[in-house]
Every structure is written in structure tokens, then in C-alpha cells.
Amino acid sequence: MAQCEQLTTTVDAVVLRMRALDATLPEHDGVAVFNRVYLAVTEAVDRHIDGGRFPDARAAITLDVRFAERYLAAVAADEERRPPACWRPLFQMRRHPGVRPLQFALAGINAHIGHDLALAVVDACRSLGCEPVDLEDEFDRVGDLLVSLEERIREDLMPGPDLLQIADPLTHLLGSWSLERARDATWSAARALWALRRLPDLAEEFTARLDAAVGFAGRMLLTPLPD
């Protein structure tokens, strides 16, 4: 097993950073909407870790922290107008009056799951000196938490009409994206990136294409809609 890197950041520390970010953002800002959702997810993961719900707590903490750091780094990069392509649509559209809160939340989830999570798995494997397969249980448990929260997010942020009214433009738009499909694709991407770790040029090209593809999906999710 490769030598492990020392992980000094805790889940509590990234929670505090997200809370501090929330305090600086206007309530209806698109990034603020996603930040509140992601904060709730991270707090839930923290409770599950503290409650012994993850068999390997160190692996769960490492994956969760590496995952959160990707989002926080994207926010910091936006201040210099250099965010990853997957996050660019949310940062560019964050104040658009024609975009609904649910669109902001799911566009952020799309960027974070579709791109950041794959890279976080690789980051965590390097930190722990393990293979992606060794983190599959932690990956699945975090994914299950996200899926369980997605329905609540849709219910809380969905303005009428009811979700079953499929003629509504928002319902139609959001029906084209699935968290479970995104999670499955991310696991495949993480394994591919790990397999390419000794081929840096190919790994960089793969990462750039993943970033662009996820950004394209995010732009679709943020299509402005009529009132």
C-alpha cells in the first residue's frame, strides 16, 4: 500500500467554512441555494460518521473532506473568474431572475456529483493509499444520503404546480436529469481516472472532457423559464 498523506481537515471544519460562506451570500443567490443544500448533506454525513454508520470512519471522513474541498475551491476560483467549467453555469446564472431555486440546487449537485466526486475519489485514494474499490462502500453510503435528500429538496424548492403535472416547463426540464444516473457515471469516471493515473496526459484530457460535459448539463438545467 502506498504511503498515506496526512489529512488534517475535519468534516466539522468544512461545515464551518460552508456556514461562513452562507452568512456572506444573499438568500436568493444561486450559489447560496446550493450551499444550503450541500451544507445539509455534509451535516448529515457528519452525523452518520459520529453515529458509527460508516464501517471505516477514516475513509468516510477523507472522502467527504476531499469532496467538500473541491466545491470550496471552485467558489474561491470564481473570485478570480477561473472556476471549473462544470461550475461556470451556476456562477454565471446565480442572479438570473428567470432561474428557479430548484434549478440552482440541482445544477450545483450536477457539478459536484458529476465532476468533483470522481476527482475526490482519486484524491482520497491517494491520501489513504488505497484503490477505488476500497472506498466503494463509503461512496455508496454518501450517494444514498444524497438520493434520500434529493426528493426532499425537490419538495421544498419546487414551486407549484405539482410534480405530476408534466406539462410544466420546470418539471419537464428537471425530468431530464437523474442523481442516480449521475452517481453511477461518476463511479465509472473515478475508476477510469484511477486507471489513467500513470498516464497524466490522458488523465488530464479525460478530466477536461468530463468537466466540459458536466458543465453542458448544468447549463441546460439552468435554462431560464417563464413565470
Rank of each mutant, 00 (worst) to 15 (best):
L193V: 02
L39R: 06
Q6L: 15
V14D: 04
A189T: 06
F54P: 07
D140Q: 14
I153N: 09
E43L: 14
R19G: 09
V122R: 04
G175A: 00
E43Q: 15
L193A: 01
L119W: 05
A68H: 09
G52E: 07
A32C: 13
D29G: 08
G218A: 08
S148H: 13
T62D: 07
E131H: 15
P101M: 09
I49V: 13
L174Q: 08
P226A: 09
L196N: 01
E205Q: 14
L225K: 00
R152T: 15
A213M: 02
P84E: 08
T207G: 12
D78E: 14
E136W: 07
Q165N: 04
L179Q: 11
R181C: 07
P101G: 09
G114N: 06
E43F: 06
Q103L: 05
E79F: 02
L221C: 03
R47F: 00
E69Y: 03
A195L: 10
L157H: 07
D46L: 14
P89N: 11
P226R: 05
F67W: 12
V31L: 10
L117I: 03
G114D: 10
C4P: 06
L63W: 05
L157P: 03
L135I: 06
A212W: 03
L157I: 08
L25C: 02
G215N: 01
D184W: 02
R209I: 00
D140H: 09
L157K: 07
D162S: 14
C130I: 08
Q92W: 00
F91G: 05
F34S: 04
L25M: 14
A13E: 15
A59Y: 08
T223H: 14
W194G: 01
A120P: 02
A203N: 02
P224C: 11
T24Y: 00
T9F: 02
A189W: 02
D168G: 03
I153K: 10
A192R: 15
Y38A: 07
P161R: 06
F34T: 07
A203M: 04
A13N: 11
L199G: 01
L149G: 09
M1Y: 04
